[in-house]
Design a protein around this nucleic acid. Structure first.
Length: 458
RNA sequence: GUAGAUGUAGCUCAGUUGGUUAGAGCACUAGAUUGUGGUUCUAGGGGUCGUGGGUUCGAGCCCCAUCAUUUACCCCA
C-alpha cells in the first residue's frame, strides 16, 4: 500500500496523554457537579437518523450536519433524473439516511420520547459526548467538540433555572475561574419587545441583531435593523431597551414599564423575578449573575429563560449556554412536555484554563513508581513488588529488562514519574532495594515493604 | 459561501536586492559517565523547501495555478 501522509480531518484533533489528563479533569469536575444536583448520565449514538436532525437547527444548521453515506451500492437506487441533474439536495436523502449528531439536546428529546414509558418525570439527565458540525474551523471552533449538557424535562419549576446558575457557579469556581458572568435573559421578554414595536414576525432578526451589541456597537445594530425592515421609529423604541443600565432589579423595573402592555413580556419578567428570588436563598461562589437584555442565543427552540456564561479573565466566546424550551419533544410527537437545560463548552474551558494556568500541577503524573531492573534476574525479582504496589493502589510499572539504566531513568523523567526503584545484583542479593526520589535525587536502600510504606505516606 | 495570512527537519521557526553545499533551538541517537536521570560538553542521523508549471545563466526567495493549514465575516459552542 502506498504510504499516506498522516493527518486528521479539518477541524478535528488528536488528544495526547497530557491533554487527556487535563480534559478529564474538566469533564470529571463538571460531571461530579451534575451528579450532586441529581442529574443522571446517559449516552446516545454517534449517529442519528438524518430525519431526526434535519429541520431542528434552522436552514443554516441543516447545512452544517455531517451526513453519512449509506453502506453498499448507494448510488444504485438513486433516481436517475436527480442523478443526471446533479442536484445534491434531491440526491442527498437517497444516498444518506444517517448523520453525526449536531448537538446533545435534540438526540435527548428523541430519547425522551422513545423512552417515555420508562422515565420517571421530572427526568434530570446529563450527557458528555462529542458533537460534529461541518463548520469552517477557527479559533475556539472545531468540527468535532465535546458538549457537557444537563437537562431536565417534565418540570416547569423555575427552581431548575436557579439551580442551573448554581451548577455553573459551582463547576466553574471549582475549576479555578474567579471572574465570570452568568448572563440571563428571557425569550418572552424579547417576544414582548417585538410585540410592543409591532413587529413580532421579525423577532428573530431583532434578536440576532441586538445580540451583537458588544461586537458591532449600537450603530452596527441600527444599520442591521434598518436593513432587515425595521423603521427609525421602531429603533427609537428599541434603543432604551438595548442600552438598559443598572442593577438587575432596576433593569426589571424599567422593563416592566416598557412592557406594561405586553402580557407575554410581563410573564417573562415575572419568571426572571422568581429565579432571582430563589437565588436569594443560596450563596454563589465566584459567579456574577447579570440580566442582559441583548442576550438572544441562536437556537430558536428556547421559550423562557436563556443563559450564557462568559469569563472576564480572557478573551473568549461563551463557555456555556442554555435555556428553557417548552416544546422540544413536540417535534417527535410528545406534546406538552417542558424542558430546560445548560451546556458547558469543554473545549473552550480547556483553552481558558490553559491560558490562565489553572490546571493542577499533579495532573501530569500518572505512574508513581517505575521499577528499573539491570538485568533479567532483577526483573524476575521485581515482579512480586510490582504487584504489591498495584495492590496498594499505587500506579506502578516495570521497565522491561535489557535497557540501560540511563534510558530507564530518562523514561521516568519523560513521564514525570516521582519514584524509581533500582534493582541490580546487589539488591537481589541483599533484599535491600534502591528507592530513588526523582525530584530530589536522594536515594536510600530499603526493603520492599519499607518502599511501599514510604511511597504510601508521601 | 466571502476576504486575508501562512506552507522550509519530528516540533517551533530563521533564511538579506534571486547567487555556490538550506540553518538554529527543541526533540531523537551515541559518547564523555562499564550501577544512576533531570545540568553541561561533544558527535551523529534526519529536508522531493506543500505540489505542478513558468521567468532566469541561476529560484526556498519572483510570477501563475493548485492543494493544505489558519484567521476574520456569516452563523454558532
Amino acid at each position: 500500500m502506498a504510504s499516506v501522509k498522516p493527518s486528521v480531518p479539518k477541524g478535528m484533533r488528536d488528544f495526547s496523554p497530557a491533554e487527556m489528563v487535563k480534559r478529564n479533569y474538566i469533564f470529571d469536575t463538571i460531571k461530579s457537579v451534575f451528579r450532586k444536583y441529581g442529574y443522571q448520565q446517559i449516552e446516545t449514538p454517534t449517529m442519528e437518523n438524518l430525519g431526526t436532525l434535519t429541520g431542528k437547527y434552522g436552514e443554516e444548521g441543516d447545512k452544517l450536519i455531517f451526513k453519512v453515506l449509506n453502506s453498499g451500492d448507494y448510488l444504485a437506487k438513486v433516481n436517475e433524473q436527480a442523478l443526471t441533474a446533479r442536484n445534491s439536495n434531491v440526491v442527498a436523502p437517497s444516498i444518506s439516511e444517517k448523520a453525526l449528531r449536531y448537538d446533545l439536546t435534540v438526540p435527548f428529546a428523541r430519547y425522551v420520547v422513545q423512552h417515555q414509558n420508562e422515565i420517571a418525570f421530572p427526568f434530570k439527565r446529563f450527557q458528555v459526548q462529542p458533537v460534529w458540525r461541518a463548520d469552517r474551523p477557527q479559533k475556539g471552533r472545531y468540527r468535532e467538540f465535546y458538549q457537557c449538557d444537563a437537562d431536565v424535562v417534565g418540570s416547569d419549576s423555575l427552581l431548575n433555572e436557579a439551580e442551573f446558575i448554581l451548577i455553573y457557579d459551582e463547576a466553574l469556581s471549582k475549576l479555578g475561574l474567579t471572574d465570570f458572568n452568568i448572563k440571563i435573559n428571557n425569550r418572552k421578554i424579547l417576544s414582548g419587545i417585538a410585540e410592543i414595536i409591532g413587529k413580532p414576525e421579525l423577532i428573530v432578526d431583532m434578536t440576532v441583531a441586538i445580540d451583537k451589541l458588544d461586537k458591532i456597537g449600537l450603530n452596527g445594530i441600527v444599520n442591521e435593523l434598518l436593513a432587515k425592515g425595521f423603521t427609525q421609529a421602531d429603533i427609537d423604541q428599541l434603543e432604551p431597551v438595548i442600552l438598559l443600565q443598572g442593577s438587575n432589579t432596576e433593569k426589571l423595573e424599567k422593563l416592566k414599564a416598557i412592557l406594561a402592555s405586553s402580557a407575554i413580556g410581563l410573564k417573562g419578567i415575572t419568571e426572571l423575578e422568581t429565579i432571582f428570588t430563589y437565588l436569594q436563598s443560596f450563596t454563589l461562589n465566584k459567579a456574577t449573575v447579570e440580566l442582559d437584555i441583548t442576550l438572544a442565543r441562536g437556537l430558536n427552540y428556547y421559550t423562557g429563560a436563556i443563559f450564557e456564561v462568559k469569563t472576564n479573565e480572557v478573551a473568549m466566546g461563551s463557555i456555556g449556554g442554555g435555556g428553557r424550551y417548552d416544546d422540544l419533544t413536540g417535534m417527535f410527537g410528545l406534546k406538552g412536555l417542558t424542558g430546560a437545560g445548560i451546556s458547558f463548552g469543554a473545549d473552550r474551558i480547556y483553552d481558558v484554563l490553559e491560558e490562565l494556568n489553572l490546571f493542577p500541577a499533579a495532573s501530569n503524573q500518572t505512574t508513581r513508581v517505575l521499577i528499573c531492573p539491570f538485568d533479567a534476574a532483577g526483573e524476575t525479582y521485581a515482579l512480586p513488588l510490582l504487584q504489591q504496589l498495584r495492590n496498594q493502589s499505587i500506579n506502578a510499572e516495570l521497565y522491561p529488562a535489557g535497557a540501560k539504566i540511563k534510558k530507564q531513568l530518562d523514561y521516568a523523567n519523560n513521564k514525570n514519574i516521582p519514584y524509581v526503584v533500582v534493582i541490580g545484583s546487589d539488591e537481589v542479593q541483599s533484599g535491600q532495594l534502591t528507592l530513588k526520589n526523582m525530584q530530589s535525587g536522594e536515594q536510600q536502600k530499603l526493603s520492599a515493604d519499607a518502599i511501599i510504606a514510604e511511597i504510601t505516606k508521601a
